[in-house]
Design a protein around this nucleic acid. Structure first.
Length: 807
RNA sequence: GGGCGGUUAGCUCAGUUGGUUAGAGCACCUGCUUUACACGCAGGGGGUCAGAGGUUCGAGUCCUCUACCGCCCACCA
């Protein structure tokens, strides 16, 4: 008779609804639809390893508020992409397969990268579907794919025409391991111990000039010596010449306030280039350029006898040489901060190369203003963006000397070196395998392709344009741009958020999104950031098999936006318990609701039912507000507390008698069934954004027959019914709980079963009116207390209840 | 060195605009096979809300300072 299975089997139920959503296009965006659009600038996961629970955490958050918006009648545009173009994916292939472009050649390498990213993307998609992201899978892209290439190349050409990109030979942040130029945003800091040695320069008269350095191997590139003009010890040296040790080169001694009298000896050598100060001095004082480090991090001919050595070897050798000649005056260990490439942890060098840049330094004001036009959630994340923009020192270097990525649509005339752009109609183009359609204005038909590739952020910064099919479907783009929401994690505010704002301002003169929601990271149990490459994550598949996808989402919903959260198997287990509890409530309710058809009007309600319905209607606006404000943790807590503490532990115990024992069609039973139906339906709707599977199963089993929505996720969000809010009923409810608690305490203290009957229960109340109402609740009080006899008396004081008798 | 967060029960975290006796889950203790659920139910123990000062009738909540933790940035001689 009861077709509801006793146990909830998430392993079979979840894939069933996943398939159902897919087959019925539940999450499809409707282009020809007048409902307001809610569009999402989904983060395309970087294809750089396996996804872990940390990703499930941050990707679940947008799904909560997207599902909420969908139930509120929004036309949802929720695409998905994979960021597989560029260095991170290359590095993964190098690490996992032990191959490099140098060893196997670029063609075989690119093939390997392609194969690995396709495999990983399949895994990613499987996981996202399984965890229940309500993505419209018709709108997917990869950043290496043709349409993304086309958008990225178009963007470059557009910016070139606007004069916002330029190619320049200048000192560039360079990774000697990856052998490519980098942007400021790809550099991260690292503290380490290093030798700080003081070496003897000399003045032309032979007097010793002690200079401290951590990088003696750059000595051959020394072009000047600086002292602080306010430093009385050294200011008299300004204008004289210094002679470098070992290499015996004469360099000028200059005065500049950036020379710190407190550091080392107060005298500093300027090499091209040891750090950004060297670059500033080189520019300001028009010093000569001696490049001594090559692209692979070796010293070149300028290094004389150090030539051919890597930086470490050269440093060791020059120290030996200096020591031999008694030129080392002092040596100590010091703590130093070095800048490293964030993808490979190699200390970066500053090397003069020719690169493409996008101008950003001249637009700081505009970029700051754009940042304030966007609503940041949580608001303090805005400060990180502002800090970044204010502290920018470099234009955005967008060329990378790599293999797997989007090429520049650019050739250079071999004869006159002028720049030739591809024709828009030819995009995407690979300049290495094709030629410009027209000869150069100088008459030459000989062209050299640009062999660098675009920075991977150069493509992903166009995510709204790529996902919204900017070039191919302008009508679609117009509907979804500016995008409603950008979800992303806080570590890439300076990259992805920043670059997307840059591109959107330059191309559209608009901010890309009205809101940005910043998630934290899922942290390992030791409190460390889980990362794809470090492999310290538990496997989401295992967790979902053991506890269900809903349970994993439950954990994700339990902390606030922007906060990191420890991966907690205990919390996932709690999620599993909640799912199970919902199922048991359903299986109990089903026997009373199986043949229930929702009444056209609210029946006459008993006080207990009025109470729970009033509480329910207090809950609805609260939860609605929470979801509107991206406060899923609070929403979850409120619904859970109402469901578990108020509804199941109290209300349901009170109405059992009416449901089991009263005649079908009696007012008492009608009121209870109506209430049970309404409350349970509303609870699963409120829970639906967070735990979409079990709520769908319950909807389909119990409520679908009375509702038109094909899926709970297409049903309308519960509306507040003000007329059901009833302060008096709530006061009665509080009294009922008070009575139940007193009886439970009594039984618990006597260590007798909750089900054992009570002989007499005496309740004293202060108001006549309350006594009258309580009398209407006798059946419910009996249900929860098993009292045979209840005496209600009026007392002057609000005396405690008295519970008597056992049998 | 600058900025932004955080510091609440053994652990993980909620605590809206300052308002009774500071909450939850897990863990712990005592009981309970109550016709939805032992993946449960009832009862209980456990916190000078990081420290100090201030504003206020009233501060976990607002202000100031201090300490520690985390993140971002700067410093890279």
């Amino acid at each position: 008779m009861n077709p509801i299975p006793k146990r909830y089997e998430s392993a079979s139920v979840e894939p069933k609804w996943q398939q159902f959503w897919e087959d019925n296009g539940i999450y499809h965006f409707k282009q020809d639809d007048s409902r307001p659009v809610y569009s999402v600038d989904t983060p395309p996961p970087t294809v750089s390893g396996d996804l872990h629970l940390g990703h499930c955490y941050s990707y679940s958050h947008p799904d909560f508020y997207i599902r909420f918006q969908r139930m509120n009648g929004k036309n949802i545009f929720y695409p998905m992409g994979w960021d597989d173009n560029g260095l991170p994916t290359e590095r993964l292939v190098e690490e996992r397969m032990g191959i490099s472009p140098e060893k196997v050649g670029p063609v075989a390498f690119i093939k390997a990268v392609n194969e690995m990213s396709q495999q990983l993307e399949k895994n990613y998609e499987w996981l996202w579907r399984r965890i229940g992201l309500s993505v419209d899978w018709r709108y997917t892209y990869t950043t290496i794919g043709d349409s993304a290439r086309k958008v990225a190349q178009y963007s470059f050409i557009d910016l070139y025409k606007q004069g916002r990109v330029y190619r320049a030979s200048s000192p560039t942040i360079w990774c000697p391991t990856c052998k490519t130029a980098l942007a400021q945003a790809e550099v991260t800091d690292f503290q380490r111990e290093t030798n700080f040695i003081t070496i003897a320069f000399t003045l032309s008269d032979g007097q010793v000039l002690p200079i401290s350095t951590t990088r003696p191997e750059l000595l051959p590139a020394c072009v000047a010596v600086f002292v602080n003009p306010t430093d009385k010890r050294h200011s008299h040296l300004i204008g004289k010449k210094a002679i470098t040790p070992v290499f015996k080169k004469e360099v000028p001694i200059l005065g500049d306030l950036k020379a710190d009298p407190e550091k080392g000896t107060g005298i500093v050598m300027c090499c091209t280039f040891g750090d950004t100060t060297d670059i500033k001095w080189w520019r300001e004082y028009k010093l000569p350029l001696i490049s001594v480090i090559d692209h692979a991090g070796h010293l070149n001919e300028a290094g004389s006898f150090l030539s051919g050595m890597n930086i470490k070897e050269a440093r060791k050798r020059i120290i030996e040489e200096l020591t031999k000649s008694n030129l080392v005056l002092d040596k100590k260990v010091t703590s130093q901060t070095v800048s490293m490439h964030d993808r490979c942890d190699t200390p970066i060098e500053y090397i003069e190369t020719k690169q493409w840049f996008i101008k950003v330094l001249d637009q700081k004001e505009r970029l700051l203003k754009a940042g304030s036009q966007i609503k940041w959630h949580p608001p303090h994340m805005h400060a990180r963006y502002e800090d970044w923009v204010k502290n920018l020192e470099w234009d955005w270097c967008i060329s990378r000397q790599r293999y797997y990525g989007v090429p520049f649509p650019v050739w250079y005339c071999t004869k006159c070196d002028s720049v030739h752009l591809a024709d828009i109609s030819e995009l995407p183009v690979d300049p290495r395998t094709s030629k410009p359609s027209k000869p150069c204005s100088c008459g030459s038909k000989d062209f050299t392709p640009e062999t660098s590739l675009l920075d991977t952020w150069g493509t992903s910064s166009m995510s709204p344009q790529i996902a919204g099919r900017w070039l191919d479907e302008p009508a679609l783009f117009k509907k979804v741009f500016p995008v409603s929401i950008r979800p992303q994690a806080h570590d890439i505010i300076r990259t992805w958020a920043f670059y997307t704002i840059v591109k959107s301002l330059y191309h559209e003169n608009k901010v890309p999104w009205s809101d940005i929601a910043i998630s934290g990271h899922g942290l390992s149990s030791e409190g460390h950031k889980v990362s794809k490459s470090r492999g310290n994550a538990s496997d989401p598949k295992e967790m979902m098999e053991a506890y269900s996808a809903d349970a994993v989402r439950y954990w994700a919903s339990s902390s606030k936006l922007g906060e990191d959260s420890m991966i907690s198997e205990e919390k996932i287990a709690s999620g599993h318990k909640l799912v199970n509890k919902l199922w048991n409530v359903t299986s109990f309710s089903y026997q009373f609701l199986e043949n229930y058809s929702s009444p056209t009007k609210t029946p006459a309600l008993l006080p207990t039912d009025k109470w729970i319905l009033s509480r329910l209607n207090q809950l609805i606006p609260e939860v609605t507000k929470d979801f509107e404000e991206y406060n899923h943790a609070s929403a979850k807590n409120c619904i859970e507390e109402f469901f578990w503490d108020v509804f199941t532990d109290n209300y349901m115990e009170m109405v059992k008698t009416r449901l089991y024992d009263f005649a079908d069609g009696s007012p008492e039973r009608d009121s209870a069934r109506f209430t049970l139906y309404t409350v349970l339906m509303t609870i699963i709707q409120l829970f639906a954004p967070i735990i979409p599977y079990v709520t769908e199963e319950i909807y389909q089993q119990v409520f679908k027959k009375n509702n038109t929505a094909l899926s709970i996720h297409l049903s309308s969000w519960p509306r507040l019914q003000k007329e059901l809010i009833d302060d008096n009923a709530e006061a009665i409810g509080d009294m009922l709980i008070e009575v139940a608690t007193a009886v439970r305490r009594y039984k618990s203290e006597k260590k007798i079963p909750m089900g054992s009957p009570l002989e007499t229960l005496k309740i004293a109340v202060t108001k006549d009116a309350n006594a009258e109402i309580l009398k209407k609740c006798l059946v419910d009080i009996k249900s929860v207390t098993r009292a045979k006899q209840i005496n209600i008396t009026i007392a002057k004081l609000d005396t405690a209840l008295s519970v008597q008798g056992i049998s």
